[in-house]
Design a protein around this nucleic acid. Structure first.
Lengths: 313, 313
DNA sequence: TGGGGTCATAACCTGGACTTATGGCCGATG
DNA sequence: CATCGGCCATAAGTCCAGGTTATGACCCCA
């Protein structure tokens, strides 16, 4: 007890308590197809392999997942709950895969994309999954960097399409707004601001010490600009280097923070963090697709844009 | 080509293209601790094992992830992008684990929870992760069912705490509102409703064929009640059995649908689906914690409630 | 010039996941 | 009613990924 670690960590790592991706994928296939054998065939393995894998998963979880019968297998109640959780893991893995595939950056890729970190991190994987479904043979490569780097790559024709955050298109590039990124004021559910009736006043926000990214970061710049009329942001409560650290600090109740809605969608849905409404300040920037001025995205670039934008007018 | 499957599936399953959970966990540990050896120690493996695993992952992804130096390892640019994607996979796996642990339902569990399907599926895993961090030795068991089943279990003292959706507490139970579940009108980004300027009128919503759950489902009941003043819901465009099927149909552009905000948080954040504002109709139900009337949650039940509610007044 | 930290390489071991081959069960069909 | 064709389970054998120990190279610092 004297030398217990500061944060208690489970003795066995996560990987030993959670079935591997193959097993989860198999479970989803069984749920969808209603038979171990068909699921096995879809994944390119044999029926006994599938049977044994599902059985191993049931042993690991200590719960029966599927009801076997001589004419197929259906999920048990517990099984369908587990399957829904499994689906979220698999979807995250698909996003990982889509991003990683692009990151591999083979020279012969037919579509080279350059994107800002935030877009590359949160948005691009989903787009690439959709693109892959629509055009399975389109290979994409990805280069991530700040806005200037993205603009440079597109101008130098090292990328066919770029994605940046910003209110205006960089010099020499045409652009289309494909969405918006709002900065949200975020607090832990226990924080007084989480219980407010009305929206927060911009003046009050400016006067309150917040948990923020370091100066020079994109979100910090937008916040500084937005609050300039009210005297600028107060001395920060904490300055942290990563979005993740920011969220962790906010969840643990260190104080309110400000960050992109893209980064906290999940936490808001799970109610680990709550949004605080603010009025009188504009904390919004456009998300833009950019390409060399005078040209018009064609081929795979156009495919990707139309997927993102619904239809590019 | 003649016998190509209807939907093109990748030749190799996802599990062969994505590192397994152990490797992702290891990568996160390296990112956090700044050294392969320390990360290895934290996961209870040896340093050569960690070295080889990271190397294998780099080979698989075709990208250098960490910069090795004689005094530690830092992530490369690509590495930090990959790490962020990995973090989302690991978080989904943690939620899976939290849910699965509870589902195992050991008899000696100190806290027995009964929850509606929607809450069990989307909210409970996150709560259990938080509870586990705060009280590592609290064992939880979970039983999922509809509102009546949950109420029955709590009344019969087969569960210490229940969670249901509904505007009022079931007979014989005391309750606290712990949140709200809005039904959202959802459309694919390409749908005309996604481009509307103003909010949709309730009359218009009632008159439009939608993709819906089958009659009798919780969300369907709320929708029926909300739209009753406007003549009730129109004949559905499609009736599907699962939330997942609903989302898939909406994403593929079959039409607008209505479902719980809990179920579409991720799709909204990724902009695969967009929310359509509606006015003049109340599509909101309370999320309630329930316990036997006259008693007061104590011990682990109280811990869980205060985590959820910030503080239980 | 050791001593502590880093990481890499080599040789070996083991368990889990795959394979093929087989058998039992059920329902539909002639 | 017999048979066929789907389903699943079991058994025996192969193979490799990931683990181990042992060792060496590198760098920094006292």
């Amino acid at each position: 007890m004297a030398d217990a670690p500061f944060v208690a960590r489970p003795a066995t790592p996560l990987a030993h308590r959670v079935p591997d991706l193959g097993a989860l994928e198999l479970l989803l296939a069984v749920a969808r197809l209603g038979s171990l054998g068909r699921a096995a065939r879809e994944l390119g393995i044999t029926q006994p392999a599938a049977s044994s894998r599902i059985r191993a998963m049931e042993r690991l979880l200590g719960v029966a997942l599927v009801d076997r019968s001589p004419r197929g297998s259906r999920l048990t109640d517990a099984g369908s709950l587990v399957t829904d959780w499994a689906r979220r893991v698999v979807e995250a893995a698909e996003a990982f895969d889509a991003g990683a595939q692009a990151l591999r950056g083979r020279r012969d890729s037919r579509l080279r994309v350059a994107a800002s970190m935030t877009i590359a991190e949160y948005l691009l994987p989903g787009w690439l999954i959709a693109l892959h479904r629509a055009r399975p043979d389109t290979a994409v490569s990805l280069q991530a960097g700040n806005s200037a780097a993205v603009a440079g790559r597109v101008l130098a024709h090292q990328a066919d399409l770029g994605f940046v955050e910003g209110s205006e298109a960089p010099e020499g590039l045409d652009s289309a707004v494909i969405g918006h990124d709002r900065l949200l004021v975020i607090a832990a559910p226990g924080h007084p601001w989480a219980r407010r009736r009305g929206p927060l006043d911009a003046r009050e926000l400016a006067a309150t010490p917040l948990i923020l990214r370091e100066p020079g970061s994109g979100t910090r710049q937008v916040l500084d600009a937005g609050l300039a009329p009210y005297g600028g942001v107060a001395e920060p409560l904490l300055e942290l280097a990563s979005t993740t650290a920011l969220k962790a600090a906010a969840v643990s109740g260190a104080g309110p923070c400000v960050l992109s809605e893209l980064a906290v969608g999940e936490e808001l849905a799970a109610r680990r963090l709550v949004r605080v409404a603010v009025e009188g300040v504009r904390l919004r920037r456009d998300l833009r697709a950019v390409w060399p001025a005078g040209t018009r995205p064609a081929g795979p670039a156009r495919d990707l844009l139309s997927l993102i934008h619904g239809a590019l007018d």
